[in-house]
Design a protein around this nucleic acid. Structure first.
Length: 509
RNA sequence: GGCGCGUUCGUCUAGUGGUUAGGACGCUGGGUUUUCAUCCCAGUAAUCGCGGGUUCGAAUCCCGCACGCGCUACCA
């Protein structure tokens, strides 16, 4: 069997879209499963849409996902160059072959004429297609126009009255009426090829064995089938695989540039793992035979079998993007990761964090509490910095007592201050270094026996610890209290609690 | 408008003539827990887009319709 060769053919026209990664993943697993080659070919044939730096961003993104190519414009390879703008001669030569064997023709129609024609068709509610005006030009007219350097394009001569059959891997045989297929432009007036010519020629020349591309290409596949025929390459025509497009989670249409979740920059900045994203992307079109939801791309290879018609056993329906589920998948990766690995990833992610060398001990505390790396910061800020205290937060803890306390303790704010003073007192006498058992025991005792002064009532243990939590962190939700306290250190804790007691009721007004 | 594809819980998916239509996310409730989260348990939710057939029997096969998506450029 021939080497399996797949390709991802991006056009550098903007930021890297999640859909590109989704498609590249298919290319990658098909090639890797059979120890073949995965190629990146840059389709920069539209000079108007070219965006400086887009290609670079793409390579960085693919690298991040570990979707490394065997041949590409940077690495080179046996079929270089891999940038279509550097292969213009090749397309020109192939256009000439078609011109010569009668499958293509010169078209000198102006853009104005085409536009006018299109408008007329639309007003008559007819399908908008080229009227094949230049198909009937005489040889003399063509030569004369060429001699006069009249601007031209090369169009494909689509045969009439024929049913073009396309074998689509995922959808089976699809029939197209050739009369409804436009005489596609193959070579533009600027000498650049259109996608149809360039991709077909390159796929053949680069010996691509499986064409995997977005579903939006399906309607133009009959043109490509025809090109294979016109060039006499029918026998080597690869299977076409058109995975479904990813749709917006709400509203209508496919995931577009306007959706923030469509850019991979979003995932990088939020701290998602590339492998988790890949897992999610596989998951929306494929289900693991064991019912597993969490698996890596190696397992996703099970979906691939080039000896079956579908090649990749995925669903044909277009899925909606679900960020919630991606977050869940990412959280699963975080939880199953070793503390060391997670620490490393956090340090890489938190490049500017002032205490990033000290996050190691904190990691086990937050591992089950974050779903993406960016969640780390708001959850742990208080560990390194004295928090901003807010009376509103304290007011949310309404100590519940089993019977009325004296008027000094009610209203609650007053009671809280008194309790905080008691807490400070216990902390000051607690033998150092503090240990978890002693810490908990002392405060339980405080809650159950020594509060309030005079023994008139009890505070719930939970409320007690909440008060300590807020005094230490300024917030109601934190990683485990004692572990956090240990990391912060006895002295700093005492300073904070003392400050809170002294300034109670004053801050944040 | 034309052409093509698609249509099972809110979302992703299993299911290929006989199932209590299964799993996952989400959501809700409960348990564990000093908060949150994790973990565990339970629940919620799909008359399988609609209407006709075929059949003893249909989510599964056929036809029609509706809806959704894509394409309809000298863009990819």
């Amino acid at each position: 069997m021939n080497q399996v060769r797949t390709r991802f053919a991006p056009s550098p026209t903007g930021f890297v879209h999640i859909g590109s990664i989704y498609l590249t993943m298919f290319d990658y697993i098909v090639a890797k499963k059979y120890h073949g080659q995965f190629i990146i070919r840059v389709e920069d044939t539209d000079q108007n849409r070219y965006v400086e730096g887009a290609e670079d961003a793409l390579f960085r993104a693919l690298d991040w996902f570990g979707l490394t190519s065997d041949e590409d414009p940077i690495k080179g390879g046996p079929f270089a160059p891999y940038r279509q703008s550097e292969r213009l001669d090749i397309y020109r030569q192939h256009a000439e072959i078609l011109l010569k064997n009668g499958h293509a023709y010169y078209c000198f129609c102006t853009k104005e004429r085409l536009e006018e024609h299109r408008k007329q068709q639309e007003s008559k509610r007819q399908p908008s297609m080229y009227d094949k005006h230049c198909r009937s030009l005489s040889e003399e007219e063509v030569q004369s126009n060429l001699a006069k350097k009249v601007s031209y394009v090369v169009r494909m001569k689509i045969p009439e009255n024929e049913i073009i059959k396309v074998q689509d891997a995922l959808m089976g045989e699809i029939e197209f009426d050739s009369n409804l297929i436009d005489d596609q432009v193959l070579l533009k007036s600027d000498g650049f090829p259109t996608y149809h010519l360039a991709a077909t020629v390159d796929d053949h020349l680069m010996e691509i064995t499986h064409v995997i591309r977005g579903r939006e290409w399906m309607p133009s596949t009959p043109k490509h089938v025809l090109l294979y025929r016109f060039f006499g390459w029918e026998k080597e025509m690869p299977p076409f695989i058109h995975p479904p497009l990813i749709l917006k989670s709400e509203g209508q249409g496919k995931l577009s540039k306007r959706d923030n979740v469509s850019s991979i920059d979003y995932y990088k900045s939020e701290g998602f793992f590339p492998e988790a994203i890949l897992n999610y992307l596989a998951n929306i079109v494929w289900n693991h035979p064991d019912g597993k939801e969490i698996y890596d791309w190696k397992e996703f290879e099970q979906a691939v079998d080039i000896n079956t018609p579908k090649v990749i056993n995925i669903t044909s329906q277009a899925p909606k993007f679900d960020l919630k589920k991606l977050e869940w998948v990412n959280g699963e990766y975080i939880r199953k990761m070793s503390d060391e690995e997670l620490t490393k990833r956090l340090q890489e992610f938190l490049v500017d964090h002032p205490n990033k060398d000290q996050i190691g001990p904190v990691v086990p505390l937050i591992k089950e509490r974050i779903t993406k790396l960016s969640d780390f910061v708001p959850l742990t800020d208080f560990i390194w910095e004295k928090p901003e205290y807010d009376m509103e937060v304290f007011k949310k803890i309404q100590p519940k007592v089993d019977r009325p306390l004296d008027e000094k303790i009610n209203p609650p704010a007053g009671g809280q201050k008194m309790v905080l003073e008691k807490i400070l007192g216990v902390m000051e006498t607690l033998p150092r270094p503090w240990n978890a058992e002693e810490f908990e025991k002392s405060f339980r005792k405080l809650a159950e026996d020594d509060l309030p002064a005079g023994g008139q009532g009890k505070i719930k243990v939970g409320d007690m610890f909440q008060l300590i939590r807020v005094a230490v962190s300024g917030q109601l939700i934190t990683p485990p209290l004692f572990e956090s306290v240990k990391i912060i250190g006895e002295k700093e804790i005492l300073d904070r609690v003392k400050w809170v007691v002294e300034n109670f009721g004053e801050f944040n007004e």
